[in-house]
């Protein structure tokens, strides 16, 4: 079913080299693409396939596996009322991704948050500053190797679940 999805058919046609994987889970379609082509793919999805609302941009840290980070774009099409998830793997040695804030301006703040909490930088971003943590904060809290209790502290000895 995933292969017949309107976006997957077009992406396979147009960006055959970039599509790495297509998955369906609980009725949700996830397509994994190479990060190099992310802006072209997102522009195509927005302009030709009407994915006009960028619901969410986030990242996941898969510490210990290669590639370490995964960019996740949750897109929604208001005219077609369907969702699509686009993912792009990011190597730890090269945590740089092109910004999609030129495609959807929502991505501006969402990418700032990823920069703040994961330390992934975005080329071409108009205003890449920390957003939730203070400007002088050291480290990126949502990385898996960042301790829950914060840096330079004894590990929490109480019971956390």
């Amino acid at each position: 079913m995933a292969e017949n999805h309107r976006a997957i058919v077009k992406l396979r046609e147009k960006f055959a080299d970039s599509v790495l994987d297509v998955k369906e889970f609980r009725g949700e379609i996830t397509v994994t693409v190479k990060k190099d082509n992310i802006v072209a793919i997102c522009t195509f999805l927005k302009d030709s396939l009407n994915y006009n609302l960028c619901s969410d941009v986030t990242a996941v840290d898969y510490l210990g596996s290669e590639p370490r980070f995964m960019m996740v774009y949750n897109l929604y099409s208001i005219p077609h009322k369907d969702r699509l998830r686009v993912k792009a793997p990011v190597e730890e040695s090269d945590t740089v991704v092109d910004t999609v804030s030129t495609v959807w301006s929502t991505a501006n703040w969402l990418e700032r948050e990823i920069f703040d909490l994961f330390g992934i930088t975005f080329t071409g971003h108009p205003d890449l500053r920390r957003i939730l943590m203070t400007d002088d904060w050291v480290g990126h809290p949502l990385r898996k190797d960042y301790p829950l209790q914060g840096p330079d502290r004894e590990p929490y000895q109480g019971r956390l679940s």
Partner: peptide, 26 residues
């Protein structure tokens, strides 16, 4: 929106909250 990633354990591997006010304020 809630984006949940599970690795098969009893806790979410990652939970992302898509807050409405955040995007509205931007």
């Amino acid at each position: 929106g809630y984006y949940l990633v599970s690795d098969g354990g009893n806790k979410p591997y990652r939970m992302r909250i898509r807050p409405p006010s955040f995007c509205n304020l931007s």
